[in-house]
Amino acid sequence: MMQTIDMATTPLRDLNALLQSQAEGNNQIQFSIENPKGSHAVAVGLDAPIEVTVNGSTGYYLAGMNKQATVRVTGHTGPGVAENMMSGTVIIEGDASQYAGATGHGGLLVIKGNASSRCGISMKGIDIVVHGNIGHMSAFMAQKGNLVVLGDAGDALGDSLYEARLFVRGSVKSLGADCIEKEMRPEHIEILKDLLERSGADASPEQFKRYGSARKLYNFNIDHAGEY
């Protein structure tokens, strides 16, 4: 059964308290949220395998710190969507603003429109699939996980990158420091195929290029020991 919560009449804290109180094994798993009108921090801190659909557009920090839950937004979303997500799935039908999926540890973030600057900044294991384009400084200091972009990437992609994998189908305006194009091996095709399927993306893995760390910036070079 679907429970509907109207944000025109239900305060944000009550809404979040209700969603956060759901436990694994409850019968009630589907929630529909109406009239978000750009509200901040909608459906944050969830920790149960529930399905939340937000009908409209949201503001800052939608589905932050998400665990297990599936959160879908029918409109656009503001800065910091799914920030520090641990697991679960967040799907944005429209565009996302700055630092989507920042510091995420796990789970899948799907943005069907465009994401703007700093997408996946400092990502730590999350998978992010953007059907459109991403802005500048995306995947800055990204440590782990996969960022897949069907469109184009902006300036300084993957600057100071650690071990996250970046897959871009379109053009890359420029690569950041220590980020290089890398060979697409069969295991990467497999990872990409799975992510494209799970995010409903109409693209074949062979169309993408892979980018990763040159590992010159963050590795200690023994030949430089005398410099310290």
Binding site: K37, G56, S57, G78, G94
Partner: peptide, 18 residues
């Protein structure tokens, strides 16, 4: 923020972008 636009007439059909 989008909140500032949410009260405008016809916003649901508007082209919205950053």
């Amino acid at each position: 923020e989008y909140r500032a636009l949410a009260t405008l007439p016809g916003i649901d059909e508007a082209r919205v972008w950053e």
